[in-house]
Structures are given as structure tokens and as C-alpha cells.
Design a protein around this nucleic acid. Structure first.
Length: 586
RNA sequence: GCCCCGGUAGCUCAGCCGGAUAGAGCAACCGCCUCCUAAGCGGUAGGUCGCAGGUUCGAAUCCUGCCCGGGGCGCCA
């Protein structure tokens, strides 16, 4: 309908250009918007005000000319001019009812759009280091990324969901070493666990698996393992130097093959846990992309070589630098350290180059806001390769600040003192957690009060929306109990019986869904869907309270059931998009 | 010091590529179950849109400066 109105206005503008009212070079983006206030009609157009200056006319006068030039349309009931020059358009009831018909006939496809026109989008999100279980901070990225991916898919994009597995870095070595040390403890060695090692219980669990699998084959006496180490942090030394020495010790004592067994077991176990965790959260991926595969295949070296050949690398202080400052970064960045190892940034360059080489029209990265300083250097790398930086859209998600009541909780992965995503799911349920996360725009800091979320109070709107869905299901069950049947064809013939204000409001809300999908997808803001669903559910509850659906008049009853079933379909589609279930009963 | 995000009702937040009297939920107060689930509905009250300038016919929305809160500025990932 919106598109139809837009073309009507465009025709009117062309008409005024033809008769000389508007200059021949008039260019205008015609904005057709839902009127906020019902007294302003169904749709509002501000074109007359936008063009007033170009036309050297008063907005209202231009509006009158425009209105006169709008061709007749069976869907338009009336056009008025109001306020400073708005053109308000009322659509016919019949035109509005098409929303109900579409929702019922298209079912789960209702709301799909062709905004994306099949463009390929790669969306990478979560990508937490596989060094431990996901915590509630990752949950927000998962909920946002999952919802955005679904939203874009619904809007007609060809979406590829990807998780970048950081399985090559030093953090993984720390994990592997931590596992090995716990294993030594299980084998009866007594040792002091390093300050900088991973302390979570899952490390012991992996160590136990290692013990079951390898028995005592990886056992070395603690006094040998810990011989001649530098001082740890608690002894007044440097914790990084200490743990690095221990990693080297582990590699030496175990040898490459055995070390790889420990490393691989730790990686597999944690990754499997993450995969299972996200799956239970309703987030699935098309691809788990290994950072190691980039190193192993030589892709990192190739990427650096390409930069070097283009003259974008130089040597300084023993390290290799990328001249990122030449491409908009504030300073140059190291890609190969003095010790010869490539930096995380180097593999990230190779990774993004790889994604672009795979032919996506657009790449979206979802990062924690703490990585924002990292954006310019990645864009710089893209420019250096001759790509447009807008091919990569980095969405930053602010942290979720956890509260237990009024007490703010501190989190640290290393110390093992964190609330896991799994615990959150166990507490509040996946539905509530996902909705809660995605309700707020991502750049907004999120205060996540666990007590409040756990209390299942109606502070959490997910119940409100699910209840609207369940209520409609319940009505259908009642219908059956009463021995009645719903004749949807008959309902369709009598949609014009739906003239109550509550009914036209609901019809209008159903019609807005496809528009909301397009707007939200264009802005990449899934929270708009959450807000829309809240409103839609409110219309359903209000209607439910104001009118009986199962009336004796079969024509009216069928029509009302068509209406609420259409509403149910929209709720179902919207909740599904957000990864939230739509239960038949509460 | 520089960079990013936020500052809208008592609380948590929408609205922000300028548009018509600034919205919602919660909390508060007053009502509604003989009726398809009251996890619901109706109503009342509540706001210098952080502050000060500027642009505009029109600013919560755009620009500049300042104040407050959070985060980031590694040869870490």
C-alpha cells in the first residue's frame, strides 16, 4: 500500500513538472509515512513542504496542486491537507483488509520483502575465543546477530552466518597449559596454579577427559615442570612472562605431538560446548571459520605479501608494520612481531580479505564496543586491497552490565568469576533472555538485572507477547469445544463487518508488519521488531477485552477469527525472527 | 589528551538521514473477572528531551562548545 501511494505521489510530482509548476530538474525522495495520529489519516506525505522552496510556493499551496494532480485510485478513500502542508491520505477499508488476507494466505512468508534482492551478506557474530564457556556478555552479540541475520534474510538477502574461531592465538596456549596443569594435579602432583591461567571448573573437566583418554602418559613431575621459572605476579614478577615460560615448558616436556593432543582436546571440548550452548539459545551458523586454517593454508602470509608488494609494509624496530595511517587509521600497526610471530591483526586482515574474495556483496561484523578502536585499521586494510570500506559494516554492541538486585557484578573470564550464558538460560529461559537482549538498540548500554529477569514478573514483555499468541490459540480451542467451526472463506467475505475501532486498529497494525520489516532491515535494527510486536500484542489484548470473538453471528465470528488468526500469524513470524518461541498455551 | 557510545516521565527505554499537541512498559493512584486464560483491560497523574549557542518556516532529532556516565586508545586477543 505504501509503495502504491508513493507511486501516486510520484505521478503527481511528474504532472507538476510537466505543467511547469515545478522546475524540470526537481528531484525528491518521496516519504510516505504512517501518520502518528489517527486524526491525520492513515498515511502522511511531506513532499509539499520539502519542495516548497524549489517551487517558490507556500507549502500548503503546493500541496493543493499536488493533491489535484494525484490520479484516482480505488484504494484511496480521501486526501486532505493539514498542518503546515502535510498531505494526509486515508485508505479504504477494503484496501486495509488486504493485510489480513495477505497474512493468512502467505502464512509464515508474510512480511518477507525483496529489499535485499538476493544480495549475498556475510554476517559474523559472537566469535568469542574458544577458551571457555560463553558468558552473558556474549549473549547480547548472539541475540543481536541471530536476530539481525533473520531480519536480513526475511528482507530478501542471501545471508551467511559465520563464527570466526580464534583457535590460533596465545590465549589458546594458555588454555592448553592450564588443562595440562590441572591434569598434573589430578595425577597427584602438587603445584601452585599460575595467576594468569584459566581457573574455571571447565578446565578441570577437560583435564579429567585428558586423564581418562591418555592415563598417565602426559605426566611429568611438578618439580621438573616448575623448575627455574621467573617470578609470577603474586611473587612480584610478571604474570605474562611467567605463563609464557610455562607454555614453552609444556611444549618442550610434552613434545609437539602430545602438546597438540592437549591443545586439540581443549579446543574441541570448549568449541563443542559453545556450539551446543548457542544451539540451545536458538543461534546456529552456516560456517565455523578457523583462524588456524588461515595460518596453515598460508593465507596470512599471502595477505601480507600482497600488502608488501603494494608497498604498504615496512620494517622498523625489528617488526613489520602496515602503513595503515595512509588509509585513515591514526597510526601504523604491527603485523609481524619482533619474535617473528604474526599478530592477531595480521590474521584478521587475511580473514577479511578471504571473506571479500568469497564474493559477498556485504560483510557485517558484530563486535563488542570495546573493539571500536579496531574498526579504522580493518577498514584501512580493506582500502589497501582496493576494496571500499563500506563493504564491511561493523556493528558495535555495548556491554550488558549485570546486576544482581542493585549490586553490580564484575566479570573476568580468566578468574572464572562470570555468569555464563548457560546459567542465564537456566535462570530466565532462552525466550526471555533473547528478547531482553534484543529489545534495546545495540549501542545502548544494557542494564541486565538478573533478579528482575529471574522473577518472571511482567516487566519482561516477552510474556505479554507470547500470551497474546496463546490467547488466540485458546480461542480456537474454545471454538472447538463449543462444537463450532471456523469457515475462513466465509470470514474473508465478511471482513467488512470489522468496523469497530479496535478492529481497524488491529487491521492497521497487521498491515504495518511488512513495512516494519523493511525499515528495520534497512537500518539493521532488530529492536524495532521487538517494539512492534509489543504494540501488536497490545492491540490484541485490548481487542480481546473489548469484544467477544465467538459470537453467535457466524459471519461476524468468522471474520473476527480471520482477523485474530492473521494477528497470530504476525506474532508468530515476528517472534520466530527474534528467536523466541510462540507457545500455544502459557 | 584523543576516539566511540549514552544522558528523553520516579525507574528501564522508544522516538533521532528535521515535521503536526514528545511515546511505551514498570512503579504510584482509581476502576474492571456470572463473560473466549486478570501473565489481561480501561482511566488518572507524571517531562526545562543534560546545559548553552547556531542553522531552519519548523530542532528531542542537524552543527559547535561545555558538563555528567560507560568504554577504548598494546609487537593482547
Amino acid at each position: 500500500m505504501k509503495e502504491q501511494l508513493r507511486s501516486l505521489i510520484a505521478t503527481a510530482v511528474d504532472g507538476l513538472i510537466a505543467d511547469g509548476t515545478l522546475p524540470a530538474d526537481t528531484r525528491v525522495e518521496i516519504q510516505v509515512e504512517r501518520a502518528r495520529d489517527k486524526s491525520h489519516g492513515d498515511y502522511a506525505v511531506n513532499t509539499a513542504m520539502v519542495l516548497a522552496k524549489q517551487a517558490r510556493m507556500k507549502p500548503r499551496e503546493l500541496a493543493e496542486r499536488l493533491v489535484a494532480a494525484i490520479p484516482d485510485d480505488p484504494g484511496v478513500a480521501g486526501v486532505t491537507i493539514a498542518g503546515p502542508g502535510f498531505i494526509n491520505i486515508d485508505i479504504t477499508a477494503e484496501a486495509a483488509y488486504t493485510a489480513v488476507r495477505d497474512a493468512l494466505s502467505r502464512g509464515q512468508a508474510y512480511g518477507r520483502a525483496d529489499l535485499g534482492a538476493g544480495q549475498r551478506i556475510n554476517i559474523e557474530f559472537v566469535s568469542a575465543n574458544p577458551t571457555g564457556p560463553l558468558h552473558v556478555g556474549h549473549g547480547r552479540g548472539a541475540a543481536f546477530g541471530g536476530a539481525l541475520a533473520s531480519l536480513l534474510a526475511t528482507a530478501g538477502y542471501d545471508v551467511h552466518r559465520e563464527y570466526y574461531v580464534n583457535d590460533a592465538g596465545r590465549q589458546m596456549d594458555i588454555l592448553a597449559t592450564s588443562v595440562w596443569l590441572r591434569y598434573l594435579e589430578l595425577e597427584g602432583e602438587s603445584l601452585r596454579f599460575p595467576d594468569n591461567a584459566y581457573r574455571g571448573d571447565y578446565v578441570r573437566t577437560i583435564a579429567q577427559r585428558l586423564m581418562h583418554r591418555e592415563e598417565d602418559h602426559f605426566l611429568h613431575p611438578a618439580e621438573v615442570v616448575f623448575a627455574e621459572l621467573p617470578l609470577d605476579a603474586c611473587e612480584g614478577g610478571d604474570k605474562e612472562e611467567y605463563i609464557d615460560t610455562l607454555i614453552a615448558r609444556a611444549k618442550t616436556l610434552l613434545g609437539p605431538d602430545a602438546y597438540e593432543v592437549v591443545f586439540a582436546l581443549a579446543l574441541e571440548t570448549v568449541l563443542e560446548d559453545i556450539r551446543e550452548d548457542l544451539g540451545a539459545f536458538g543461534v546456529t551458523y552456516d560456517e565455523w571459520f578457523s583462524e588456524r586454517s588461515l595460518t596453515d593454508s598460508g593465507a596470512v602470509d599471502q595477505a601480507l605479501q600482497r600488502l608488501d608488494e603494494a608497498g604498504h609494509l615496512y620494517e622498523s624496530e625489528g617488526a613489520t608494520w602496515f602503513r595503515s595511517s595512509a588509509f585513515g587509521d591514526e597510526k601504523d600497526r604491527v603485523v609481524r612481531r619482533e619474535n617473528g610471530a604474526v599478530t592477531y591483526f595480521a590474521s584478521d586482515i587475511a580473514y577479511h580479505l578471504n571473506k571479500l574474495d568469497r564474493g559477498y556483496d556485504q560483510c557485517i561484523d558484530i563486535w563488542g564496543a570495546d573493539h571500536h578502536g579496531y574498526v579504522p585499521r580493518v577498514h584501512a586494510a580493506m582500502r589497501a586491497f582496493g576494496h571500499e570500506p563500506d563493504q564491511l559494516d561493523v556493528r558495535l554492541v555495548q556491554f550488558a552490565i549485570l546486576y544482581r538486585g542493585s549490586e553490580r557484578m564484575q566479570m573476568s573470564t580468566r578468574s572464572g568469576q562470570f555468569v555464563t550464558l548457560r546459567e542465564l538460560r537456566d535462570d530466565v529461559g532462552a525466550d526471555a533472555a533473547r528478547f531482553f537482549y534484543v529489545m534495546r538498540k545495540p549501542e545502548q548500554h544494557l542494564d541486565f538485572d538478573l533478579e528482575l529477569a529471574k522473577s518472571q514478573s511482567n516487566d519482561n514483555p516477552v510474556y505479554y507477547i507470547q500470551y497474546a499468541h496463546a490467547r488466540i490459540c485458546s480461542v480456537m480451542a474454545q471454538l472447538q469445544e463449543k462444537g463450532l467451526e471456523h469457515d475462513d472463506a466465509n470470514g474473508d467475505r465478511h471482513l467488512t463487518r470489522l468496523t469497530e475501532p479496535h478492529e481497524t486498529e488491529l487491521v492497521s497494525a497487521i498491515g504495518r508488519y511488512p513495512e516494519v520489516i523493511e525499515i528495520a532491515a534497512a537500518a539493521r535494527e532488530p529492536h524495532q521488531i521487538a517494539h512492534f510486536l509489543r504494540e501488536l500484542a497490545s492491540h490484541v489484548h485490548t481487542y480481546y477485552n473489548a469484544h467477544q470473538f465467538l459470537v453467535d453471528d457466524a459471519d461476524l465470528r468468522d471474520a473476527r477469527l480471520n482477523l485474530v488468526l492473521a494477528a497470530r500469524q504476525v506474532i508468530r513470524n515476528g517472534l520466530h525472527l527474534l528467536g523466541v518461541s510462540a507457545p500455544d498455551a502459557m
